[in-house]
């Protein structure tokens, strides 16, 4: 007797970690709002934040529905503790100077664009639909970050120096994006998710192309901090999370 073919179930923790990546990246990038070097840049970064937040809302909502314990996007974003967030540390790191923010954006959104491109073929129809939508948004984000990387890297001696420093500083944190754990492997095996290690060759190729155009040096691989996926975060995250959750925790159930 053969068992009927069923669509493999998505583990709620899988969309949750992807949603956490987008949510915390949006929250951190938002700190540039009203502080960017030009008005156009302010609008651009706010636009990118809005896209990332839209992705986060969709992913967290999906995770809550899969979990079936009544948690929605708000309870997941505002009522979890620091250790319950499973985003990579890269997205929570301080913005630093503008070059650091652009290096973070370039590395992270290039990963997202490749991930969503593949996830559009997920066996989970909800994940496939939102990935097919998000991949087009990510393409604009990577284009923006790459343009700044080239402008700063191939700019003045000072901007070149600072862009190279930013790339070198952030590079170690990119490894965690591509380090699969048991959840990633299980999601890839049943077709709902992607093994992130398979994304790195193309990511490396694209990043190398941009850094070369920017007259920058691709850093050597070495130190590779991790732990974000297991809820281990840097000191910077506690401050960010406290600010993000303060209103909701002070006024439970508050609405606009």
């Amino acid at each position: 007797m053969t068992a009927p073919r069923t669509t493999p179930a998505t583990a709620p923790a899988y969309p949750l970690r992807l949603g956490d990546d987008a949510l915390i990246a949006a929250q951190r990038l938002l700190q540039w709002c009203a502080r960017a070097p030009q008005l156009e840049e302010d609008v651009a970064l706010a636009n990118i934040c809005l896209d990332l937040l839209g992705q986060a809302r969709a992913l967290l909502t999906h995770a809550g529905e899969l979990e079936g314990r009544g948690r929605n996007e708000d309870t997941l974003a505002f009522l979890r503790t620091e250790q319950e967030f499973t985003h990579v540390q890269l997205v929570e790191l301080d913005n630093g100077d503008f070059a650091v923010s652009m290096a973070k954006l370039l590395f992270f959104t290039t990963y997202q664009e490749l991930l969503y491109g593949r996830l559009a073929a997920s066996t989970d129809p909800a994940l496939a639909a939102l990935a097919a939508k998000a991949v087009k948004e990510s393409a604009y984000h990577t284009g923006h970050a790459a343009a700044w990387t080239v402008r700063l890297g191939d700019g003045t001696q000072e901007s070149h120096h600072r862009m190279q420093h930013a790339v070198d500083t952030i590079w170690p944190y990119t490894h965690a994006l591509f380090t699969p754990d048991a959840l990633d492997r299980a999601a890839a095996a049943n077709g709902t998710g992607i093994d992130p290690a398979t994304l790195r060759p193309l990511w490396h190729e694209r990043i190398t192309r941009t850094l070369k155009e920017a007259t920058l040096t691709v850093p050597d691989d070495g130190w590779a901090p991790g732990g974000g996926r297991q809820g281990i975060h840097t000191e910077a995250f506690g401050y960010l999370l406290t600010e993000m959750q303060a209103l909701h925790r002070a006024h439970p159930g508050a609405r606009w």
């Binding site: 937040l53 839209g54 939508k133 998000a134």
Partner: peptide, 8 residues
């Protein structure tokens, strides 16, 4: 259907 996921 939304134009962008985060369309306000």
């Amino acid at each position: 259907t939304p134009t962008y996921l985060g369309c306000p």
